[in-house]
Design a binder for these strands. Structure first.
Lengths: 220, 220
DNA sequence: CCAAAAGTGTTAGGAGTACACCCATGG
DNA sequence: CCATGGGTGTACTCCTAACACTTTTGG
């Protein structure tokens, strides 16, 4: 730790949070981006984010920026990694704490945005050029999300309260970018015990599908 | 991202790095701590660390602080988590990027320290009270280390260039804090293919033990 | 010859993967 | 009646975990 005020001053830096917000729409994993209205990188897309205020935690800053910039209702937020190379921002030394967030498909706003020129969802398979080092941040976030899906339950948060197993499967397929075996998928989900059948059916295609919901706590 | 200089200034914070340095000595997982010479928390132990300078990356800051404060030769460094709650440091708003590091047993200095009052290794099972929120940071680091040991090769870095399988096993046991089955452990290590036998034997106890070394690249 | 650590195989259970057919419904 | 997505079971492989005895050496 530091031993005197002088070196503390010397080291004062800017701290931001940037959030990689994911949702799944039309069978594709998508990221929320904002088109910048000012230099640098004017006109290019960037992650939502902004400076951390003195009285708030890093998480609070992330929530606040999302609210202000996109009006998005987040259901999951997790710290990702901190990027702090000098030169990552042409305006000066800025350290950013990156988060990743999930929004349920049915709550993902098509547009919003208060202080940002324009916000839009982009499929991760077709991202535009990104400002700063945001391409690297998005890349980290995608890897983390895919990774977590294999050993945890992250991703469940992207669905509405009641859902079919087929929709859960296609959600996983969209995130992972590959097809999954139906029987193995259902067996694994059942073994996790995090989901329970409801009385309701969903009548979309031909045969009605059972709707499931999340079990809040483990145990029956 | 931010849109004007004014709010940038408003948000200027202090950024530090803190490093949880692990080694294994005497069958115990240990952490390097420094006794603070100044207020706040004067006399209490804290993690090595300090402020990030304007021209260096976060990693470089971590390496520099370790060199300056402890003279320790690190073989592994990984970013852990960023802690930034207001109030975590009584001197003001300080965001710290925590790292965890590993030092080989044979290179862990018993003492060192240039600008710190006194440095010492503490077994994680018997830590003193720590300054700031450092207890929480150490806790995160231990969980991460134990976790990584089960699905990766982190921890190998703690051994000298040539080592016996028994010493590798007791290293793992010290980190995990539990006993492992000798045959299963050897089978798993062999399956990983990261280790190869050398011609040398080690004659400590009664029956001499084969010395192994790391294979730098996968393949024969 | 004995104490102490080195070294070595087999079996059982669980998790993941590959694979194909019948069912219920709306049009 | 048929097209469409819903729903189900079995066999194989691989990884993990439990478990005990023989070998080599120094004293």
């Amino acid at each position: 730790m530091i031993e005197n005020i002088e070196s503390m001053q010397k080291a004062a830096l800017q701290v931001t949070v940037d959030i990689v917000v994911f949702t799944v729409q039309d069978q594709a994993l998508k990221v929320l981006l904002i088109q910048r209205g000012v230099e640098p990188f004017r006109g290019q897309y960037a992650l939502p984010g902004g400076f951390v205020l003195s009285g708030e935690t890093l998480e609070e800053a992330a929530f606040r920026e999302l609210r202000e910039e996109t009006g998005t209702e987040i259901v999951y937020l997790e710290q990702l990694y901190t990027f702090g190379d000098p030169g990552r921002d042409p305006r000066g030394r800025i350290v950013t704490v990156a988060y990743f967030a999930l929004v349920p498909t049915d709550k993902a706003p098509l547009i919003a945005g208060t202080d940002a020129a324009s916000t839009a969802w982009f499929a991760v398979s077709a991202l535009p050029a990104l400002a700063f080092d945001h391409a690297m941040i998005v890349d980290h976030a995608i890897r983390r999300l895919r990774n977590k899906l294999e050993y945890s339950t992250v991703g469940f948060e992207l669905l509405p309260a009641k859902f079919t197993l087929s929709s859960l499967q296609s959600l996983h397929e969209a995130i992972l970018g590959k097809a999954l075996d139906k029987r193995n998928f259902r067996r694994r989900i059942e073994a996790l015990g995090l989901v329970k059948p409801t009385k309701d059916m969903f009548a979309t295609g031909r045969k009605p599908a059972r709707l499931f919901s999340f079990r809040s706590r483990p145990g029956s």
